[in-house]
Structure formats: C-alpha cells, structure tokens
Nucleic acid binder design. Structure first.
Lengths: 202, 202
DNA sequence: AAATCTCCCTAACAATCGTTAGAGAGGTTC
DNA sequence: GAACCTCTCTAACGATTGTTAGGGAGATTT
C-alpha cells in the first residue's frame, strides 16, 4: 500500500471513530509514520483527505449498484425452487458482504453517521446509501419476483417495507453500533435468517 | 434560565451537531455571552458539561419509564373499542411526544449517535435508549393487550418485532437525520399511522 | 553529466485549544 | 462596618492546531 492509500486508510479509521474535526493531522501522520509536511505532498489540505474518501466511496457504490442491476436481470428461477433462495442470495451477497460488512463501506457509513449533522453533502449521501438505495433495490428485486407469481403483486409494497425496515433496524443495531465484531455479524445474520424464514416459509 | 442551564443548553446544541471534541469552550462561551473563566465557575472542566448532560438525560428517561409503567397498568379497554386505539395512544403520547420529538431528548440521541464510537458510556446508553427500552416497553404493552384477547398470544413476539423495527427505521430516517423540522415530524407520523392502520385494521 | 521529478525530511508560523490565578462588584451574614 | 459568599471579569499559561518554506536523497529523463 502506497503512502497516499495508507493516509486515507488511517484517516478513515480515525474519522469514523472520533469524527473529522477531532482528528488532527499529527494523529494521522503519527499512525502512518510520516511527517506532517509529507502528508501535504499527497493532499492539499485536511479537507482534501475527506473529499478523497467520499469520492472513493461514491465510485465504490456506483460499482455495486451496477452489479445489482446485472443480478436482477437474471433469468427467472426454475420452478420448484423456493423463492426465498433468490431473495436471500441477493440480500446476502450484495447488500451484506460487499456493503454493510465490507470494512471500507462500514467505516464510511459510520463516518457519515457522525458527520451528517454538520456536513450536508455527507447527510445526503448517508440518506441515499442507507435508506433510499436499499429500499429501491429491494423493491426492484421483489417486483421481478412478483412476475414469476410467487407474491400477489399488490402486496409487494408492504412486503418490501417490512423487509427494508427490519434490515435497517438490524443494521443500526448490529453493524453501526460499537466495534464490528464477528459476534455482531453473526447476530445480524441470524436475525435476518429468522425473519426471512418466518416471513416467507413458515 | 440561569447561566449554568444556559451553558448546558448551548453546549448540547453544539455537541449534538459537531461532536464533543470539535466544540471549544470558547464556542460555547461566545454563544452564551460569558468569559471562559465564568464557565469554569459552573463546571470543573469540559468533560463535566458532558457528564452533567448525561446525568440530566438519565433522570429524564427514568421519569418517562416510570410514567410508562403507570400507563400500562391501566384497566383493560372497554369491549368494542378498537385495539389500535390504545397502542397508538401509547406510542403517540409517550414514545413520541415526550421522547423522540422532545427537543432535549432528540438532541441527546443525536449526541449519543455521534459519540458512541469512542465513548463506551454513551454507546451503552444509546443502545439501551434506542433499542432495548423501546422494544421492552412495546413488548410489555402488547402482552397486556393480549390478555384481553385481541391477539393470539403466540404471535405477539413477531408483531412487536415488526412494529419495533418499523418505528426504529422511521426514527433514524426522519428524527435522527438532518434538522428536526415540522415536515419531518409530519412525515414520521404519517408513516407510523399508515403502518398501524394497515397492520391492525385493514 | 546535467537537469528534472518524486517523495520525504527539519523547522517553524500564527491561531486556537483547555485551563487557571487573581481581582472586583453586589448582596447577605456576623 | 467587617467579613463572607456568589458570580463575573481581565489576562495569561503551555500545549496543540492546520499549514508552509526550504532542503535533500534517490530515481528518471534529457
């Protein structure tokens, strides 16, 4: 990892725990192992580090959304296959592993959570990433499932609201609360599984 | 309002927007209209302001929880009265007006949200106030409703989980996101009403 | 071989940080 | 009237903040 990436990595870890203003250039440089003036060779000022992190996150998210689009264009599942398979697969693989649990994304979500109240740009990104996008993705997935006839079309809106609210609550409870440990990840996954099982199988 | 209360009021407003470390003693004193040394007559140091806010919040919450206990000891509703009346009343009056919408509590919740990642005391309080307590209160209310026979007992756990997750999601989406405007409050209340209506009446 | 570019350093700048010593004005108690 | 208490002030302290000027070692280009 080059110096620039190292700075961004260390800065994100510190920003997401203590907040942007509370972290000093010297804190970051001390952890990276460089002098302050070296940091200013790679970034024009402190704000530039934050902006670069936001930019990196935006393109990361764009990549994920494109990927989700491809997934939902999959041909309909074979008959006989339980319909929770596809939804769980989508939810597990894309929403969770490469997003909520992904170390970079998880720290960025924490940073947005912390900074949203005095940084309008981050507030908008926070709302989009945690509320708008997941809801629209789930809606799109379930609308496609509906065309295969597994749900009555008119119930879809409330089914998605139910899933979305449950997963959002769990996200705040387990993934954006304290350190992201394996235990929290397991607790999160267990609750999602229980919910999906009860809602779509039992 | 005396000087001490004014300091706490201004400090909470600033802490909840920019975070504890990012707010300086001079910021607070400038807004209150006093010199820094005067602040140190009322508080022994900066941390003491935060501790006093936490203490105030704790006793505020204790009062609310006691009140909720009294409410749930109400005699069973008359037959024929729709069971959503009581739940909506409880939810509206106690969870919302005197908690989530209450200016002091709302700012404290934002402060806990911001500081939870590097203040274990606030993290624990945050988890209790936003997740544990509301869930237990709702569970207790609905268990009492069940004794009147309006719900099958065995479904209660999932009914409460459904309500709790929905309200938690809405709380983060509308009440702990941006400025707490009348529009957000209305949007929150509308979504709660729609959910309750659909879930328990339609 | 000379010149340029890349990346890091030492050393310092003015501004701001949390905090404190000590004084003074106004009211209450001996 | 002297002593005391409550509350605010002026003025300063050492430490830390973001940032910059200028230099040097090593690799690359001319």
């Amino acid at each position: 990892m080059n110096t620039r990436d190292k700075i961004m990595d260390v800065a994100l870890n510190m920003f997401s725990e203590r907040g942007y203003e509370a972290v000093s250039i010297r804190d970051i440089c001390g952890e990276v192992g460089i002098k302050e003036s070296t940091l200013y060779y790679h970034f024009k000022n402190k704000k530039d580090i934050l902006d670069s992190l936001i930019e990196k996150f935006r393109s990361h998210i764009d990549g994920l959304l494109t990927h989700v689009d491809e997934i939902t264009e999959m041909p309909p599942q074979k008959k006989g296959k339980k319909h929770d398979d596809i939804s769980l697969k989508m939810v597990d693989s894309y929403m969770i592993d490469s997003y909520l649990f992904d170390p970079f994304c998880n720290l960025m979500l924490r940073l947005m959570m912390i900074e949203q109240f005095h940084n309008e740009e981050l507030r908008v990104l926070y709302e989009k990433t945690l509320f708008t996008d997941p809801y629209e993705i789930q809606m799109s997935v379930f609308k496609k499932l509906a065309t295969t006839g597994v749900f009555p079309e008119k119930e879809i809106e409330w089914i998605v609201k139910e899933i979305h609210s449950y997963m959002t609550m769990l996200t705040f409870k387990y993934l954006l609360n304290g350190e992201l440990t394996k235990e929290r990840k397991k607790a999160y996954q267990k609750e999602v599984h229980d919910f999906m099982t009860r809602r779509f199988i039992a």
